[in-house]
């Protein structure tokens, strides 16, 4: 052993301490063993950095707001409905859409890890994966919402969805009043990533 770790030390402790060097060491080792194609890594990064992200989810929301048949299909079987739009795959194999109403606001968390609907929203933001969000969103969602600048109207219940299985949740926000003249593209531009997690509302353009 080139390092002075005992055999009981976890394998990860054998890697360099700096995380950037740690990932480089793993990538180099796996590449030299023939197990990784660095071009495949570039392709994965390209997809999640530039192609798969919250614009997908926003297109789904805008379509649901403008196409009543689609909205119905989305609420009945979101997996099928979003597949129609080409949004399928890893971390989105089983999708459920949950609709905000004047009676209920929906908010999504994964307390056990970081489950998130990748094909619709991309890679989760840092705060979604943070201990503070994971710990608190289930117990005090309204305090968390207040930190995001969201105060719900009196009488609106909060429903927190803890993603404990492979079902991935998309919040269908309420369409803001005063947007009747907007088409689906213009509506999609109003829908933020956070609104589809349930930590933001959608506002009409000023």
């Amino acid at each position: 052993m080139p390092h002075d770790h005992g055999d009981d030390a976890p394998p990860h402790s054998l890697l360099p301490p700096d995380p950037a060097l740690r990932v480089k060491a793993l990538e180099t080792l796996l590449t030299r063993k023939g197990l990784i194609d660095p071009a495949a890594l570039d392709e994965i990064i390209e997809i999640y950095a530039h192609k798969v992200g919250p614009r997908n989810g926003a297109a789904v929301v805008a379509r649901a707001w403008t196409d009543p048949d689609f909205r119905k299909r989305l609420l009945e079987d979101a997996t099928e409905a979003v597949a129609e739009m080409g949004f399928t795959g890893r971390q989105g194999e089983h999708v459920v859409a949950v609709e905000n109403t004047p009676e209920q606001h929906n908010m999504v968390v994964c307390t056990l890890c970081s489950c998130y609907p990748w094909p619709l929203l991309g890679i989760p933001p840092g705060w979604y994966k943070s201990d503070a969000y994971r710990a608190r969103a289930v117990r005090e969602p309204r305090r968390v919402l207040a930190e995001f600048g969201v105060t719900l109207p009196e009488g609106q219940r909060v429903r927190v969805w803890d993603s404990t299985a492979e079902v991935r949740y998309l919040v269908l926000p309420m369409r803001p009043v005063g947007t009747d003249g907007l088409d689906a593209n213009a509506l999609a531009a109003l829908v933020s990533r956070d609104a589809m997690i349930g930590t933001a509302l959608v506002e009409a353009p000023a």
Binding site: P19, A20, V23, K24, L26, E27, L30, I36, A40, L41, D42, I44, I45, Y48, A49, G53, G122, I123, P125, G126, W127, S130, A132, Y133, R136, V144, E147, F148
Partner: peptide, 22 residues
């Protein structure tokens, strides 16, 4: 809950992207 300001990049550091891809 600590949030990044504005439009944070999907991967805050290049090695984050590499870690996910590996």
């Amino acid at each position: 809950v600590q949030r990044a300001a504005g439009d944070a990049p999907v991967f805050a550091e290049e090695w984050h992207a590499r870690a996910l891809a590996v």
